[in-house]
Design a protein around this nucleic acid. Sequence first.
DNA 1: AAATGAAGGTTAAGCGTTTAAGCATTATGC
DNA 2: GCATAATGCTTAAACGCTTAACCTTCATTT
Lengths: 360, 360
Amino acid sequence: MASRANLSDIAKALGVSVATVSNAMSGKGRVSKELGRAIREKAKELGYVPSLAGRALSTGRSHVLGLVLADIGHPLFPQFAQAIEHAASEAGYGVLIGDSRGDIEAQSRAINRLIERGADGIVVVPRHGTCIADIGRPVAVIDSPSTPGNTVAADHRNGGLEMGRHLLELGHRSVAIIGLHSDSNVQNDRIAGIREAFAGKGEARLIWIGEMERSHGSGCPLGLVGLVEEGVTAFAAVSDLHALRAITELQQGGVSIPDDVSVTGFDDLIWAGVIAPSLTTMRMDMERIAEIAIADLISQIDQGGARDASSDLPALKGQSSIPMELIIRQSSGPVLGRAAPGDRTSVHRWPASSSATDPV
Amino acid sequence: MASRANLSDIAKALGVSVATVSNAMSGKGRVSKELGRAIREKAKELGYVPSLAGRALSTGRSHVLGLVLADIGHPLFPQFAQAIEHAASEAGYGVLIGDSRGDIEAQSRAINRLIERGADGIVVVPRHGTCIADIGRPVAVIDSPSTPGNTVAADHRNGGLEMGRHLLELGHRSVAIIGLHSDSNVQNDRIAGIREAFAGKGEARLIWIGEMERSHGSGCPLGLVGLVEEGVTAFAAVSDLHALRAITELQQGGVSIPDDVSVTGFDDLIWAGVIAPSLTTMRMDMERIAEIAIADLISQIDQGGARDASSDLPALKGQSSIPMELIIRQSSGPVLGRAAPGDRTSVHRWPASSSATDPV
DNA sequence: AAATGAAGGTTAAGCGTTTAAGCATTATGC
DNA sequence: GCATAATGCTTAAACGCTTAACCTTCATTT
């Protein structure tokens, strides 16, 4: 009932001025050791919680960040949100969510709404191929290192490279890369990496799901079994979502994974470890990405709000690429020559999940 | 540059008092038609955007809601977040996210943090089996109708009932229900529904993934192929996540879906429509659930903040159950007698996605 | 011993909004 | 034609916090 205690309650209880209490709590002004302690004790006793509204009004900072995702419905969103929330929370910021519902115009509207709500800065994971207009506030963009204006991102290209190498080591010489459509920088980077790995060492063809669906309807079969018959021994999807689609389609067609063909994904979505076979994939270090994005944002905020041209953020601004981590599970294996499903225990395998005691 | 215009800027520009401008904008006090219009015009001209901080300080309402999810990493979270954000946004509220990282104690901490941040109310999708402590603020709980203190939820039991009937209609008389563990009200409701449908008409056994993993390690095979040999013709998972696990395990074991057995899920997760076979599942009406939760919350807030005993919210408080929707796709089909994979075109099928032109 | 400085406070203004109370001015009732 | 009411606006206080400026007191320094 007793509506929250405020500074003046503490001040009154101790017979000092509000300013002193404020100083004591923030450690800024000049307050004697003892009085400081006494004030902090009283504060705790009264259950004092600073009013963010009051502080915001006074300082002009809300200590709230906005998080705008191209498509909140994307399965990777939870990981993002969790990581961002955690990093922001550590830094004393709250996170306000904005949904751009996929379309570009709505994305700007979402950003504006967050700003009107007083967000000090915005983290944007943009829609494929979008450029973020220069709003008059600090922004951190998480897309891909090859996107202009990008702040921090996973090193998708190198992730692709590693994935390609992984498949090459297993003996694969003909891979089909599965992507959605060509206007995503993230996907393009991953694809470029895989191709680079295969350059001169094998054949890498490309399948755009988007194109196939445009002509054959969404959810249509991708004709992967046919590719297997043409000699493709591995499918490298640029997202676990597509890898899952590939795995089920192949299995339904009677193709055995990984004995007949290997399938790999990207992102380590939540189910990647529990499907059969569990999925070899490439994981982003969300925690680090979030941490850097938030650090950059806060640094921008502290350096004085809405500077036009970004100036002198030393190592921060400018293309941080965070390494990705290859997670080898069951869906990728050595090329077996298409007839003899012998043992294939040579490759080190991860358990389905970190807490597993029995790696299947 | 020009830091946002405020009320007094408008007042000065028009030679009136701030109070009048405030009244004109809110439509509350007494302002003449003409002056009102003039003020609103000027406001638009100056690009006036009300300061939420100022308003919050003055009114004691932040117009921000907190959203706490038991586990932000859950694949259903995006749908929740999107729906809640949308509903809140329509009602003029922002949404602050809080992550309870799965554990119960962290859940309370998350709630407290949101409250300290000034959230006017909280939407909680609680951890299985958690009771939300009475914080001194409006709360809306979305769990299951059988949870005490629940505000609104999908009618999981009836969803289970419908799913069971669907399988019965297809001729299935022996189903295995797949759940994670028994301390989730949502899962229990769904299971109870399925069982009710099968009561007296067929056999329904139960598989807890949690128990199996405790002894055999996480990600372990569930032994579903063995059950098929024992005569089970359908697997009804209480979540798409488990359905996916079942589908891949069965496919890997050479069982054909839906010719040999049917598999169904719950929640219509994002990939349910694109795997092969696409997944028959039961969808919640998130939009409505979110709408009702938000409406309830706002009503509580408007009725005067922290009332102890919830009083006279008429139809709102008290167990709103929102019907679920059965989505029939490819993974469920008629029992075929285990040998003759004949045609099975009698059942009406959904396209993989609403925009599909070719239902595969 | 006077000037200087630091230490430990206090006062007061300001952030942008809302809202109760006050005060003219004009309309209404009888 | 006078009390009453409604209308249209202004004044002023309040919300809770921060921060610059100011004022003592006491310890140094010259």
